[in-house]
């Protein structure tokens, strides 16, 4: 099952990138996709079986993206305010906190979301412990409330 899904993802990429729809190029694409899947089939999907659960996770992830885009716009306005104000009211500090998330995918999504929300970037993850650089004390308190962590845990069904 996972071979068929990876084949379709790769073949869609081939069609978009080549842009030619005659028989010769499509046949070339089929051969190339089969070769790539034969050589490296364990990279795209690490688990052995493709469950129905994974599809629900993907749908929840797509629902999460508009909220993330809104946060990105907010964070950019925040950065623009900090940069263009003459006194630059910043008070940077490093904070560390433990996270309850277990899976690799949810850790990566959480780190990505921290980097894209206002005033914080992830510096290090080591065994579930995050090291985050915050630009002022207020955003540091915001991140410690753990609202975003709950959202990410809801996506990957860890709550």
């Amino acid at each position: 099952m996972k071979y068929i899904i990876s084949f379709f993802i790769l073949f869609l990429n081939w069609v978009i990138l080549s842009g030619m729809l005659d028989t010769f190029h499509l046949a070339l694409g089929v051969v190339a996709c089969i070769l790539v899947i034969y050589l490296s089939h364990d990279i795209l999907f690490t688990c052995d079986e493709f469950f129905y659960k994974n599809l629900r996770e993907v749908i929840r992830l797509i629902k999460y993206i508009p909220w993330l885009l809104y946060q990105i716009v907010l964070s950019n306005i925040h950065v623009a305010y900090l940069v263009l104000s003459p006194k630059m009211p910043i008070d940077p500090q490093l904070i560390r906190f433990k996270s309850k998330l277990k899976k690799d995918v949810s850790l990566v999504t959480f780190a990505h979301s921290i980097t894209l929300t206002p005033g914080t970037i992830t510096a290090d993850i080591r065994e579930g412990e995050f090291c985050v650089h915050c630009i002022s004390r207020k955003v540091a308190e915001d991140i410690l409330t753990g609202e975003m962590e709950k959202k990410v845990a809801h996506i990957f069904m860890e709550d």
Binding site: S75, V79, P92, T115, I121
Partner: peptide, 8 residues
């Protein structure tokens, strides 16, 4: 802080 500005 420079990473904050460029990353976003």
């Amino acid at each position: 802080c420079r990473m904050q500005a460029t990353g976003k």
